[in-house]
Design a protein around this nucleic acid. Structure first.
Length: 289
DNA sequence: TGCCAGGCTTCAC
DNA sequence: GTGAAGCATGGC
């Protein structure tokens, strides 16, 4: 159990930022994370002061990097033009979010699952897969389950994967597991590649398109230049940038900007606005006919 | 009950 | 190259 001060780290925002599906709030000031075969409890003693349920060695060798605690995120926000009021607001609102260094394999499968699913539904599937095929992690009176390794998933019955509420994504998961377990796809060695080559390799996996590849690059390989565009990002770009986001301005850290837009957009965009955009789109379509 | 969800693949054209 | 259809199922 160690206590650390990180004034610019916000566990709540990070947990709610949609990049990780096994970092859950379990109390007013407590979160539970299952990652890398370990369970970590994080208690916020006060703003910027956290208690981690691990020893110094584990914290320094694993969690400090996992939460990217040594990076100064302020320098990214400073690069946003003052006149871009939307992004200024998004960055201020999201202050404290970190881009996590997650396991590439878990990130790959989690984001294959994510397509056309809500975040709670993704969490359900990830938990079901872990409980069905992952190794047990005993912790006190409770038992948790690690996310299954490729070998464990590749040995699974296809129908048992299907039973994890993954629907039509089951064959994608099954094939990815076979590829990784057989060595046909070595996710560890991909970290040697540059962004373009990594993207190409990820796109070669069935069920992985531009958006999922971007998420795996950003959250699994910490390629902060990746800019995955999902419905939320596209919605914000349409609404605030007339469909064209100035991506070049944020070369090398567009992924962090993307996360600010995603978090701010989801938290503040209401249904009436969504309806307005929908009607506008239909009108545009109608005017073309 | 119906709509929507951190999209992708396939197939026309 | 582009656009549309079809996809399984949970959560609200």
């Amino acid at each position: 159990m160690i206590v650390e001060e990180y004034p610019h780290f916000d566990i709540q925002k990070t947990a709610e930022s949609g990049q990780c599906f096994r970092l859950n709030r379990i109390g007013d000031h407590e979160w539970l994370l299952i990652a890398y075969g370990k369970v970590l409890q994080i208690t916020m003693e006060r703003k910027g002061r956290y208690c981690f349920s691990c020893g110094r060695k584990e914290f320094d060798s694993l969690w400090k990097d996992y939460f990217d605690l040594e990076t100064d995120y302020g320098k990214f926000a400073e690069r946003i033009p003052k006149k871009d009021l939307f992004l200024q607001k998004a960055a201020a609102f999201s202050d404290g979010i970190r881009i996590l260094r997650q396991d590439p394999w878990e990130t790959l499968i989690s984001f294959i699952i994510s397509q056309r699913k809500s975040i709670p539904a993704i969490q359900t599937s990830v938990e079901k897969l872990s409980a069905a095929f992952g190794k047990k992690i005993p912790a006190g009176t409770k038992t948790y389950y690690a996310f299954p390794r490729p070998e464990e998933l590749s040995r699974a019955d296809y129908d048992d994967i299907l039973a994890c509420s993954v629907g039509y994504r089951a064959p994608y998961i099954y094939r990815a597991a076979k590829m990784c377990a057989s060595g046909e796809l070595d996710l560890m060695s991909l970290s040697e590649l540059d962004d373009a080559a990594l993207r190409e390799k990820l796109l070669s996996v069935n069920g992985v398109g531009e958006k999922v590849a971007g998420c795996v690059m950003l959250f699994g390989y910490h390629r902060t230049g990746a800019f995955p565009v999902d419905v939320w990002i596209q919605r914000m770009i349409d609404l605030h940038y007339d469909g064209h986001f100035p991506l070049k301005r944020y070369r090398g850290f567009a992924g962090i900007i993307q996360q600010y837009i995603f978090y701010y957009g989801r938290q503040t965009y209401d249904r009436s606005e969504r309806m307005r955009m929908k009607i506008e789109k239909l009108d545009k379509k109608g005017s073309l006919i």
